[in-house]
Design a protein around this nucleic acid. Structure first.
Lengths: 228, 228
DNA sequence: CGAATGATTGACCCCCTTCAAAAGCGGTGG
DNA sequence: CCACCGCTTTTGAAGGGGGTCAATCATTCG
């Protein structure tokens, strides 16, 4: 079923991104053009030449890898402020696709790297950005490798809740489908759905707006279910 | 490294293709002392102040996280040439423990970071080191999240085989216990053992020296079982 | 040898997957 | 307004892959 999505024509950006400011990463990024993306549009695909680095301005982008038989593992959701497409190789080894409407800022990868060669501050920012991403990926790996379904889902909900500026009170908006959550957590759609239902039955969460909004009714209990 | 598809062989500092001339990193590391470690000795523990960065000189070090109930996930095996202990935080968030006798070179984390602030070349090396580690961790995450036991074990054996200088002909030495492999792959000891037995019964591998040496008798078949 | 550690093998079971169907939920058009 | 359609989510029933528990075997070392 994902085969259809993945095989579908890819939408990519034109090449008109110029970044020429010196020094700090923030100023460099400020010069990039912003693109608006529909839900499920690709930012880049595995095998594409790595021309740009992108900063998420709005929405969510799933970074994922697909196996030859269609199985998919999302390795990260990128949220506003996150950089995606960093790396040392000439080609992307992962794909990036929006899970909802989104806006991303395009930066020239070559320019960024050239500037980093003369700007230790910028280079250190890239280092720290990737270090944090590594920490997040390791954390996800621990979940997928060791935790049960209810622990994974609980922890995922908590991670959404803890993301700065992501919630009013205790309600979090799921900006992705069940299939995206499943492919992040190494579960199936059905298990994610059943687990959410179980949490609802237990009175730990409430589901609203057709399951796209989750109210964390009992944070303490949810935390305990997540098992730290 | 468990980096079948994504990561190229890890860059060795001081002898890499990135920079041929002696850099601040090389000089810094040259000044570090080398510690000899017994099997199962800790290099650092979760919560320890992050005073040093270590470069593996010999042996294998498991980087892992333990949950409060004892479950353990190894997020990486570090081999000679690899740097461990990099990061942005003041304390280690993971533990590091040898899986066999090993030697590590100790570098001052503070010195490294201070020099990186004035040396973009060094900062970029750190960036690239972490980027490659990120790629390897993502690759492992895909395995743990999506692959079956036989695929995981096959891919793990192949990753050992592909590591530069790790094998004579088709024999690879397992420098870690079944429990280490299990905790890396998100399986149990028993499943790892059963899967190796199955591979042996299929004629794909041979086990020698009490299961510490594996001969990859049918590389093509093993690759196909790994499913890329 | 005998104890300790690790690996293998067996039996059983459970969590999650798989397959299948039904139910929501928007959109669109008559 | 409602019927219809596509997409997503939910729910059900059945089965399997890997976990758990436990016994046996192998290797090392005192």
């Amino acid at each position: 079923m994902f085969a259809a999505e993945i095989a579908a024509p890819r939408t990519r950006f034109g090449a008109g991104t110029i970044v020429a400011t010196p020094s700090a990463l923030d100023r460099t990024m400020g010069a990039g053009s912003v693109r608006r993306l529909e839900s499920k549009e690709h930012v880049f695909c595995e095998g594409d030449p790595r021309r740009h680095v992108f900063r998420i301005e709005e929405g969510v982008v799933a970074i994922y890898k697909t196996l030859n038989d269609g199985r998919r593992q999302i390795v990260d959701f990128a949220y506003p402020g996150d950089l995606i497409g960093l790396g040392t190789l000439k080609e992307h080894v992962l794909s990036a696709q929006t899970t909802c409407e989104a806006k991303v800022r395009c930066l020239s990868a070559a320019t960024l790297e050239r500037e980093a060669e003369n700007d230790p501050e910028l280079a250190l920012k890239l280092y720290k950005s990737v270090s944090q991403e590594l920490a997040a990926t390791r954390s996800l790996l621990v979940s997928v490798g060791q935790r049960s379904a209810i622990e994974r889902v609980s922890l995922f909900l908590l991670s959404l809740y803890r993301r700065p500026g992501a919630h009013e009170d205790t309600a979090v908006h799921l900006s992705m489908l069940r299939s995206d959550i499943a492919d992040l957590l190494g579960l199936t759609i059905e298990t994610v759905s059943r687990t959410l239902t179980k949490l609802r039955t237990m009175g730990v969460i409430e589901l609203q707006q057709g399951g796209t909004v989750v109210t964390l009714a009992d944070l303490a209990r949810l935390t305990s279910l997540a098992n730290e």
